[in-house]
């Protein structure tokens, strides 16, 4: 069986090859809330940066990743503020309580739901019963998290950003001379918005492109803005 990280990474890599920059699915195109400020719980973003080696493998870079995490959270706060929404940061429960175990299972379930959406909505094989539907959910237990934080929605963010090493550039140049296309770095990821009253996935966006940089505040802000292009709040 594929591990969750492996499966998601693989899926997004395969999607990145498709060449479409950002695409979304909605349960609702716009969420009605009147003048009320929406409280959005940001689940710990899953971000990793790395370098593509000459052989085409990705070498994770912890320093870049730590910097990128800060930039991504700051950019998300800014984007949500523009949408009259307040970002609340999720903190994993420390004690091993029944409630903490439900939190953990909900996060793991979201990974499986996200993988299913990527596989069956963005890639292949599609599910015939889901052809005209977008009805994935985490179920009503998501209320437990919403109630604890006083949040209306949960936002999940997954980003992988890779950069081309000098060795890889040399391989790419040589391959180009020989008429073969060899990929370099890429920015790939997804975000989803979950209704914490119902558990329903309201919006799911996938980013896949050969440009972007999460190592600087302005470029990270551009990446987050692109990822949230069709955000329903």
């Amino acid at each position: 069986m594929l591990g969750r990280g492996g499966l998601i990474t693989v899926l997004i890599f395969s999607l990145a090859l498709a060449g479409c920059e950002v695409a979304s699915f909605y349960a609702k195109e716009k969420l009605e809330r009147g003048n009320k400020t929406a409280h959005v719980l940001l689940m710990t973003p899953d971000v990793q940066l790395g370098e593509v080696t000459a052989g085409g493998l990705v070498e994770p870079n912890a320093e870049w990743t730590a910097i990128a995490e800060k930039h991504v959270v700051a950019a998300l706060k800014e984007q949500l503020a523009k949408r009259k929404s307040r970002l609340v940061l999720y903190r994993s429960p420390k004690a091993d309580t029944p409630k903490a175990r439900i939190h953990t299972q909900l996060i793991k379930l979201h990974n499986a739901v996200g993988s299913s959406i990527l596989l069956h909505k963005f890639a292949s094989p599609p599910l015939p019963t889901k052809e005209d539907k977008f009805d994935w959910t985490l179920g009503p237990q998501a209320r437990i998290v919403g109630h604890e934080y006083g949040a209306d929605y949960a936002l999940f963010v997954y980003l992988r950003d890779t950069y081309t090493s000098p060795g890889r550039v040399a391989v790419m140049v040589l391959a180009a001379v020989l008429g073969v296309g060899v990929p370099g770095g890429a920015q790939i990821g997804f975000a989803s918005l979950v209704d914490l009253k119902t558990g329903d996935v309201l919006w799911f966006s996938r980013l896949a492109r050969a440009s972007g940089d999460l190592r600087t505040p302005s470029a990270a802000a551009e990446s987050v803005k692109t990822l949230l292009k069709d955000f329903p709040l």
């Binding site: 594929l2 693989v10 395969s14 493998l57 990705v58 070498e59 890639a123 292949s124 015939p128 019963t129």
Partner: peptide
């Protein structure tokens, strides 16, 4: 890393071969 590459190939093969039909 080698594992990632093999998973990548595996996922592409799976995606290419499997199709669902409606019951």
């Amino acid at each position: 890393m080698a594992r990632l590459a093999s998973l990548f190939i595996l996922a592409l093969l799976i995606a290419a071969c499997v199709q669902y039909s409606l019951v």
